[in-house]
């Protein structure tokens, strides 16, 4: 099984290395990292920093997809958490105090966690299809964010809040530590508790899992909660980067990026087996791709074209029809030869 996992993550890593190599060749400055005041700068560092919001959202999306679901509302939830946090800070008399910022962040994240649980409730208890259930919040979420900010783009000045995205810690961008922390916490929770395997079990075969006594409803419910929580943190990072709550543009289209990262990492949209490591690699691929496209002089607004093409290619590559074509081209790997080898049964004497 370890072999299989290795095998699965090999492709995304290969793609990432190829992208990095391409960049390194076409612009040597890509790999260079400069140290200024004990802080690291360079394209690679930018990728680490800028990928943080997507990383958080994609981690949550991985869990949701593992249960055969999808969360389209992550972008809207980012807008909500940013709006909540910045409104609290801007209304506070001490916008620069650590306490205010902590309260603001906690409030923003708590609210999206509740919204995530709401999504989970609609999916697991009411039984609405995940796309539709989360579509409702995707639709209404930005409206809610706009209401919170009163229809304006709230801007603030608050040093501790700016630290979240723009600051440094022991030489590395602070945002990098946030995404690193999220990766570690989620990996630990998923692999050190039974949640990982139970989530996979529900995603692979809901009925068999039910018969084995797995609380599938609770699992499905909580992954949406986690997804909301992580989207909330991502929203904080985003708003800290621009020091403004932009309800219309915060996290716009991030749901597709996140889905793309998950799929690129090797987790199937059909649910079941998931790989967090793959998603992490997938996020870096997307961020590097964005960086490459910007470098090539393509306006950032056009990047969706490239992402759409990647989505199409990846989805087609996963489809059965294309696999059949491929296996026909390589006759050595026809499906008939890969069927299970019968095991010789021992007949007891």
């Amino acid at each position: 099984m370890r072999k299989l996992l290795k095998h699965r993550i090999l492709w995304p890593i290969g793609a990432l290395l190829a992208l990095v190599l391409l960049n390194a060749v076409s612009r040597p400055s890509f790999l260079s990292i400069t140290v200024r005041d004990g802080e690291l700068y360079g394209s690679l560092i930018d990728i680490l920093r800028n990928s943080a919001p997507l990383m958080l959202v994609a981690l949550g999306m991985t869990l949701v997809i593992a249960t055969r679901g999808i969360d389209l509302s992550v972008g809207a939830q980012m807008a909500i958490s940013g709006a909540v946090a910045l409104t609290i800070i801007s209304d506070s008399k001490t916008p620069g105090s650590l306490g205010t910022v902590a309260v603001a962040i906690l409030a923003g994240v708590a609210i999206t966690f509740i919204f995530g649980l709401w999504n989970g409730f609609l999916v697991s208890v009411v039984g609405i299809q995940p796309i539709i259930a989360t579509l409702v919040l995707m639709l209404a979420g930005r409206g809610i964010a706009l209401l919170i900010t009163g229809g304006f783009i709230t801007t603030i000045t608050s040093a501790p809040y700016a630290q979240m995205s723009q600051g440094y810690l022991i030489g590395f961008p602070f945002a990098f530590f946030v995404s690193l922390g999220a990766i570690l916490v989620i990996s630990l929770v998923v692999r050190r508790t039974a949640l990982g395997v139970l989530t996979e079990s529900v995603g692979i075969n809901p009925e068999a899992s039910r018969l084995a006594g797995v609380r599938s409803r609770g699992i499905v419910w909580s992954v949406y909660g986690v997804s909301g929580l992580l989207a909330g943190v991502a929203g904080i990072l985003y708003s800290s980067n621009i020091m403004a709550a932009d309800a219309n543009n915060a996290g716009i289209n991030i749901e597709l990026d996140a889905i793309l990262a998950v799929v690129l990492g090797g987790t199937s949209l059909a649910g079941g087996k998931f790989t967090l490591a793959g998603t992490v690699v997938g996020v870096f691929i997307i961020q590097t791709l964005t960086s490459t496209i910007t470098f090539l002089g393509v306006p950032p607004a056009v990047t969706p074209v490239f992402k759409a093409l990647v989505v199409i290619v990846v989805c087609l590559a996963q489809s059965r029809r294309v696999r059949e074509w491929l296996s026909r081209i390589r006759p050595t790997r026809t499906p008939t030869t890969t069927t299970t080898t019968p095991v010789v049964e021992r007949i007891p004497a």
Binding site: L269, V302, P304, V305, V311, C315, S319, R321
Partner: peptide, 29 residues
């Protein structure tokens, strides 16, 4: 994509949405 390659409709159309939106900017910013 939806019918012949079994891509879920929302993914296929989401890709279509990004393609179209990106191409808008190709036409003019």
């Amino acid at each position: 994509m939806v019918h012949y390659f079994d891509v879920q409709p929302f993914i296929a159309s989401l890709a279509g949405m990004f393609l179209a939106r990106g191409l808008c900017f190709v036409v003019s910013l």
